[in-house]
Amino acid sequence: MTNQNRLYIVSTPIGNYEDITLRALEILKTVDFIICEEFKEARRLLSRFKIEKELFSLNEHNREESSRELFEIISSGKSAALISDCGTPLFSDPGHLLVQMCINTNVEVVPVPGASSLMPALVGSGFNLDRFYYAGWLSPKKELRKTELSKLKNIKELIVLMETPYRLKAILTDISKIFGSSCQTVVAFDLTLPSEKFYRGKASEILKIVESKNLKGEFVLLINNR
Rank of each mutant, 00 (worst) to 15 (best):
D130E: 15
E41S: 13
N62G: 05
I83F: 03
L172G: 04
F127R: 09
R226Q: 14
K169C: 13
G15H: 11
T21S: 15
E163L: 06
I223D: 09
M1C: 12
N62D: 11
M119G: 08
V210E: 03
F132G: 15
I175K: 02
G136A: 08
L158N: 02
Y134P: 09
D130L: 10
V186Q: 03
L172Y: 01
G87V: 07
S150C: 03
L207I: 14
P113R: 07
I171R: 11
E148S: 03
I178L: 06
V109T: 01
K208C: 14
E211R: 03
C86G: 08
L161V: 10
E60F: 06
P13I: 00
Q4R: 15
H61K: 10
R167N: 01
Q100W: 13
N16I: 13
G124A: 01
L161F: 09
T185R: 06
K78V: 06
A115H: 15
V107I: 14
V110L: 07
V186G: 07
T88D: 11
T185I: 03
K53T: 01
F189L: 02
E196W: 04
F189V: 06
E211G: 00
Q100D: 14
D190T: 06
E54D: 05
W137R: 15
G15L: 10
G95T: 11
P111I: 00
L7S: 02
N104W: 08
R131N: 15
I73K: 14
T173H: 04
T105R: 11
T21Q: 04
T21D: 02
R167D: 06
N224D: 15
S150W: 02
Y133H: 11
I27F: 02
G180D: 00
F49W: 05
S176D: 12
I34M: 03
Q4A: 14
F219H: 04
L222H: 04
A170P: 09
S181A: 11
K213G: 08
E65C: 09
G136I: 01
D93M: 02
L45V: 10
N62L: 09
F132P: 14
E54F: 04
E52C: 07
S212M: 10
K153C: 00
D130Q: 14
I35N: 13
G95Q: 15
G77N: 13
W137A: 14
A115D: 10
P194V: 03
E211Q: 00
K216C: 08
F39W: 10
